Amino acid sequence: MSGDDDVPGAGLCVANIVITIPCFVAAGTEVATLSLVSTLRAVGHGVTVCCYGHYDPAMKERVGTCGGQWHSIDAEHEGRISRWQAIRGMWRLFREVRPDCVHVQFVSPATIALGARLMAGVPMGVLNVHTAGAAGYGLKNRLLFRLTAGLATQVVFVSENARRFWMGAQSRPNAHVIHNSVDTERFCDGANRLDRLAERARHGIPADAAVVGIVGRLVEMKGHRDLFAAVKSLQGSHPNVRVMVVGEGPDRARFEAFATELDLAGRVIWTGLVAPEDLTRVYPLFDVLAMPSRWEGFGLAAAEAMAAGVPVVGCRVSGLEEVVEDGVSGLLAPVGDVASLASALGRLLDDRALARQMGAAGQARVERLYGRPVIEAKWQAFYAGLGLG
Results as ranks from 00 to 15, higher is better:
243 V>M: 13
140 K>M: 07
65 T>H: 10
270 W>N: 09
297 G>A: 04
268 V>D: 00
274 V>I: 14
108 S>T: 14
243 V>T: 11
264 L>H: 08
188 C>K: 10
11 G>E: 05
320 L>H: 00
63 V>Y: 07
342 A>Y: 00
144 L>G: 05
44 G>V: 09
356 R>S: 08
217 R>K: 12
136 G>W: 02
227 L>T: 06
43 V>K: 13
195 D>L: 10
330 G>E: 04
87 I>K: 13
180 N>F: 00
37 V>G: 04
240 N>T: 13
122 V>C: 09
29 T>G: 00
386 L>D: 04
193 R>N: 10
302 A>G: 01
389 G>R: 03
197 L>Y: 10
236 G>H: 09
125 G>K: 02
298 F>V: 00
224 H>N: 10
286 F>P: 00
68 G>V: 04
299 G>R: 00
244 M>N: 02
199 E>D: 11
357 Q>H: 13
145 F>K: 11
140 K>Q: 11
71 H>D: 01
178 I>K: 02
3 G>Q: 04
180 N>H: 13
142 R>M: 03
110 A>I: 05
388 L>K: 10
184 T>C: 15
347 R>Y: 09
254 R>D: 14
205 I>H: 02
229 A>L: 15
255 F>A: 05
23 C>K: 07
217 R>S: 00
169 A>M: 01
19 I>N: 12
230 A>R: 03
206 P>M: 07
205 I>Y: 07
245 V>P: 00
276 P>S: 05
299 G>F: 00
273 L>F: 14
92 R>P: 07
160 E>Y: 00
126 V>W: 04
260 T>R: 15
277 E>R: 13
299 G>T: 00
138 G>Q: 09
79 G>L: 10
148 T>Q: 10
183 D>L: 08
193 R>M: 09
45 H>M: 08
260 T>L: 11
285 L>M: 14
130 H>L: 05
353 A>Y: 06
294 R>W: 02
258 F>W: 15
185 E>L: 14
182 V>G: 03
297 G>I: 02
324 V>P: 06
58 A>F: 06
2 S>H: 14
277 E>M: 12
239 P>N: 08
241 V>S: 01
340 S>K: 01
60 K>L: 13
221 M>G: 06
361 A>P: 11
221 M>R: 09
217 R>D: 01
119 M>I: 14
72 S>T: 13
220 E>P: 01
8 P>A: 04
61 E>N: 14
131 T>I: 08
2 S>N: 14
19 I>A: 06
42 A>K: 14
198 A>Y: 15
285 L>N: 03
80 R>Q: 15
115 G>V: 08
257 A>H: 12
236 G>C: 12
145 F>R: 04
271 T>Y: 01
86 A>W: 07
72 S>R: 10
216 G>P: 02
274 V>H: 06
23 C>Q: 10
196 R>K: 15
121 G>N: 11
231 V>H: 03
253 A>V: 15
146 R>K: 14
318 S>W: 03
